[in-house]
Amino acid sequence: KKVTINGVEIKFNNPEEAVKFALELAKRLNLRIEFHGDQIKIE
């Protein structure tokens, strides 16, 4: 399963991993996060 985070394609074994990764990243950098299907936007 491929997920695009800020235009960067990252391959994950499952979608939950991708979501956890994105949330952790957003929390660490104190950023806002948006989900659009397989696209995750962090700003």
Rank of each mutant, 00 (worst) to 15 (best):
K1F: 15
K1S: 14
K1V: 15
K1E: 06
K1T: 15
K1R: 11
K2V: 15
K2P: 06
K2Y: 14
K2T: 15
V3M: 03
V3R: 00
V3T: 02
V3W: 05
V3L: 07
T4Y: 15
T4S: 09
T4G: 01
I5K: 00
N6S: 06
N6E: 03
N6P: 02
G7R: 02
G7H: 03
G7N: 05
G7F: 04
V8L: 10
V8D: 02
V8P: 01
V8K: 08
E9P: 06
E9W: 07
E9L: 11
E9C: 09
E9N: 05
E9V: 13
I10W: 10
K11V: 15
K11Q: 14
K11T: 14
K11M: 15
K11C: 14
K11I: 15
F12A: 02
F12I: 04
F12C: 07
N13P: 11
N13R: 12
N13F: 09
N13V: 10
N14I: 08
N14L: 09
N14V: 07
N14F: 08
N14K: 08
N14A: 06
N14C: 08
P15V: 11
P15E: 11
P15R: 12
E16Q: 12
E16V: 11
E16S: 11
E16M: 12
E16G: 09
E16W: 13
E17F: 08
E17G: 05
E17T: 07
A18M: 06
A18C: 11
V19R: 08
V19C: 12
V19Y: 13
V19Q: 04
V19N: 03
K20C: 14
K20A: 13
K20V: 06
K20N: 07
F21C: 09
F21I: 05
F21Q: 03
F21L: 04
A22C: 04
L23D: 04
L23I: 12
L23G: 02
L23H: 06
L23Q: 08
L23P: 00
E24M: 07
E24G: 05
E24W: 12
L25W: 09
L25H: 03
L25A: 05
A26M: 06
A26D: 02
A26R: 02
A26L: 07
K27T: 13
K27G: 12
K27S: 13
K27N: 12
K27Q: 12
R28V: 10
R28H: 10
R28W: 11
R28L: 12
R28Y: 12
L29K: 01
N30R: 03
N30L: 05
N30P: 05
N30K: 08
N30E: 07
N30D: 06
L31V: 13
L31Y: 08
L31N: 00
R32E: 05
R32P: 06
R32Y: 09
R32L: 10
R32G: 04
I33G: 00
I33D: 00
I33L: 10
I33A: 03
I33S: 00
E34Y: 11
E34N: 05
E34K: 06
F35T: 03
F35A: 02
F35W: 13
H36N: 11
H36D: 14
H36F: 12
G37D: 12
G37P: 12
G37K: 10
D38F: 07
D38V: 06
D38Y: 06
D38A: 06
Q39A: 13
Q39S: 14
Q39F: 14
Q39M: 14
I40Y: 02
I40N: 01
I40R: 00
I42W: 02
I42S: 01
I42T: 01
I42L: 15
E43Q: 12
E43G: 13
E43F: 15
E43L: 15
